[in-house]
Every structure is written in structure tokens, then in C-alpha cells.
Deep mutational scan, measured.
Amino acid sequence: DEIHIHFNGVTIEFRGLTEEAKKALEEAIKRGASEEELKELARRLIK
């Protein structure tokens, strides 16, 4: 299970995320999180 985020022309790929983690990332994107914020969020979620 993986998710691809297209962000300002950059694709960020995450693997092994739970549904909750995906929802958290989607919410962050909707509120306009920066690419760095998304990566940091993903790091926290994957652990």
C-alpha cells in the first residue's frame, strides 16, 4: 500500500501507511502544508 503526493511538480512517495496516516497527510495537504512539513509528518507517521 503506497501513496503518491504530487506537490509543486515533485512526487513524494510513501509506502506502508495506515489509513489514519493517509488521512493525516491528506488533511495536511488540504490546509496547505509545505513539502518539508509533509515529509516530517510522514516520518512521524511511519515510525
Rank of each mutant, 00 (worst) to 15 (best):
R15I: 12
E35I: 15
R31P: 00
K23F: 13
R15V: 13
K30V: 12
E19G: 12
E36G: 05
E27P: 00
T18H: 06
D1Q: 12
F14Y: 08
E35A: 14
E40I: 04
S34C: 04
E2Y: 14
E40K: 02
E13L: 12
A21G: 15
K30D: 10
S34W: 02
K39L: 15
G9R: 01
D1S: 13
K22D: 00
E27Y: 08
E27D: 14
E19A: 11
I46T: 04
E37Y: 05
L45D: 00
E40N: 04
I5Q: 03
N8I: 06
E13F: 13
E13P: 07
L38P: 00
I3Q: 07
E37C: 02
E36V: 06
E40Y: 02
I29L: 07
A33E: 02
E35L: 15
A24T: 14
I29G: 02
T18G: 12
V10Y: 07
T18I: 05
E20W: 08
I3P: 06
K22R: 13
E27H: 09
E40T: 04
L41S: 00
E36Y: 06
D1M: 14
E27I: 09
F14L: 09
K22C: 03
K47W: 15
N8L: 08
K23D: 06
H4A: 07
I29E: 02
E20I: 06
R44W: 10
E20F: 05
K47S: 15
L45Y: 11
G32Q: 01
F7V: 13
G9C: 02
I3H: 09
V10E: 08
A42I: 15
K23T: 12
L38M: 08
L25R: 00
E36C: 04
E37H: 02
A33C: 06
D1L: 14
K23I: 12
E35K: 07
L41V: 02
E20C: 05
F14I: 15
I29F: 13
E26S: 11
K23G: 07
K47L: 15
E26Q: 09
V10W: 03
I3F: 14
H4P: 02
R44T: 12
K47C: 06
R15P: 14
D1W: 14
E37Q: 05
E26I: 12
G32C: 01
A24I: 15
T11W: 11
E36H: 08
N8K: 04
K47M: 15
A21K: 01
E20S: 07
R44V: 10
A21W: 09
E37P: 00
E20D: 09
I3R: 05
E27A: 11
R15G: 09
E35D: 10
D1K: 10
A28K: 01
N8G: 11
I46M: 11
G32P: 02
K39C: 09
K30C: 04
L25K: 00
G32R: 00
E2I: 15
E35P: 12
R43F: 13
R15H: 13
R43H: 14
K22N: 03
K47V: 15
K22G: 03
K22Y: 10
I5E: 03
L25T: 00
H6D: 10
F14G: 02
L17Y: 05
F14M: 06
L45I: 08
E19N: 09
T11M: 09
K39P: 00
L38D: 00
R44F: 10
E35R: 09
V10T: 12
I5L: 12
K30F: 11
R44N: 13
L17R: 01
E37V: 03
L41I: 11
E2Q: 13
I5P: 03
H6Y: 05
L17E: 02
R43Y: 14
L45H: 01
N8Q: 12
K39T: 08
V10Q: 11
R43E: 15
T18F: 05
A42Q: 03
A28N: 00
E26F: 09
G16H: 09
F14D: 02
I5H: 04
H6R: 04
G32K: 01
R44A: 14
I29W: 14
K23Q: 10
K22W: 09
L41N: 00
I29H: 10
K30Q: 10
I46R: 04
R15L: 13
K23Y: 12
L25A: 01
E20M: 05
L25Y: 03
L45R: 00
I29Y: 15
K30W: 12
I46P: 01
A33G: 02
I5K: 03
I12R: 00
E26V: 09
F14N: 01
E20V: 07
E19M: 12
A42N: 01
V10R: 03
L41F: 03
E20P: 05
H4L: 13
K22M: 12
E40S: 06
T18M: 03
L41Y: 03
V10M: 12
I12H: 07
E13G: 07
L25P: 00
K47R: 05
I46V: 05
F7G: 04
A21R: 00
L17N: 02
G16C: 10
G32T: 01
E36Q: 09
G32F: 04
E26D: 10
E20K: 08
K39Y: 15
K23S: 10
L45K: 00
A33K: 02
F7L: 12
H4Q: 10
E2T: 15
G9M: 01
I29R: 06
I46E: 08
N8F: 06
T18V: 05
H6E: 13
K22E: 03
A24W: 05
H4G: 06
T11D: 11
I46N: 14
S34Y: 01
I12C: 03
F7Q: 04
E2K: 14
E37F: 05
R31Q: 14
G32W: 01
T18N: 11
E27R: 09
R31T: 06
E13R: 12
E20Q: 07
K47T: 15
T11S: 10
G16I: 03
I3G: 05
A28T: 02
R31M: 14
K23N: 11
K22P: 01
E19Y: 11
E26M: 11
S34P: 04
E20A: 09
I3L: 11
E19H: 13
G9W: 07
K39F: 15
T18W: 08
I12T: 07
K22T: 07
A28V: 03
E36M: 07
K23L: 11
H6S: 13
T11P: 03
H6N: 12
D1G: 09
E35H: 10
L25D: 00
A28Y: 05
E36L: 06
L38A: 01
L25V: 07
T18Q: 06
K22Q: 08
G32S: 02
L25H: 00
A21M: 14
E36A: 11
A21Q: 09
K39W: 15
T11F: 11
I29Q: 06
K47F: 15
